[in-house]
Design a protein around this nucleic acid. Structure first.
Lengths: 155, 155
DNA sequence: TGGTATAACATGGGAAAATATGGGAATCAA
DNA sequence: TTGATTCCCATATTTTCCCATGTTATACCA
């Protein structure tokens, strides 16, 4: 049986001049619980930072190893980008991580940042950008509603 | 081996200035029994709060993980929308959860709230809004009576 | 059947604990 | 040394926890 962990919610925190941000306490709880670590990298598809547990990347690596045709060549290349970019972000005793300039500038983050839960992953956005992005996604969602419902999956 | 659990009934409770509401005791019993947690998010289709068990969302996360690939755009949007909005709501020793302003204002809830069972999920409404909604749904059900028969095929 | 005792629940308010965040001191690297 | 990075305090909030009380539901007994 596997332990449940989900990155959820949307939380704004300040980023100080040193690049420090408090990791949402729920996220910290997960990291502690599983005694693992947070890993972040530049999102390939959006102007934001993406994060997940180190385990998640390990799982990705394993999947690539074991299934040859599951991932296309393109995606295999993408994973190279991810692993090349990814870095661990341990948090200090006050619960903060220190984001790098590379990540911050990719996401256009300055004074404050929003953590957006994505289940097994999460993203960190510039607040204004995220606001726009959320509106966009919601609008889109209303069009293709059927596929969205968190329906109680049977079985 | 799956246990039976159903959120049922319609129960009104007060919401105090801190946003605290007593979770209906039947609901609490379910959460304890399955030793899981309540998760709430803004309903996509109605002005109300929707809730379910954390397991339900975890199941969704698993499905997404296994069915779509790591970089899919659809998956991206979907997870942002659902997990970005959802949040765990543990209840204290007196059985209350603390609803957030985001949720309360989405549902237009101030002094009191109604919990409406929906089986695997439940909803939390502003009492007056729910009254209207219930009337509407009942009226609708009467009109479309025939389509409610068991031989319907969309299951 | 009615009435009462008991337990479970809802709810208000305040105390205690956990967070977020600013400002250094200490450590390290080149 | 200089700049950067990590670590540690201090503090203002926010959130959680705990106790007290009124209410409602349930059990039990005469």
């Amino acid at each position: 049986m596997r332990k449940i962990f989900l990155f959820m919610d949307t939380i704004i925190n300040k980023v100080d001049s040193k690049g420090r941000v408090s990791l949402p306490s729920d996220y910290r709880a997960i990291v502690k619980e599983l005694s693992t670590e947070i890993v972040c990298y530049r999102s390939l598809s959006s102007p934001c930072i993406e994060g997940c547990l180190e385990e998640t990347l390990d799982k990705l690596a394993q999947d690539i190893e074991t299934s040859t045709d599951f991932f296309s060549e393109t995606q295999d290349n993408l994973t190279n980008l991810i692993f090349g970019d990814a870095k661990r972000f341990p948090f200090d005793s006050t619960g903060r991580i220190v984001l790098t300039d590379k990540l911050l500038s990719h996401a256009g983050i300055t004074g404050s940042a929003v953590f957006v839960g994505k289940g097994r992953k999460f993203q960190i956005w510039n607040p204004e950008n995220w606001e726009k992005e959320e509106r966009r996604i919601r609008a889109e969602a209303l069009k293709n509603r059927p596929s969205l419902k968190p329906q109680e999956t049977d079985k």
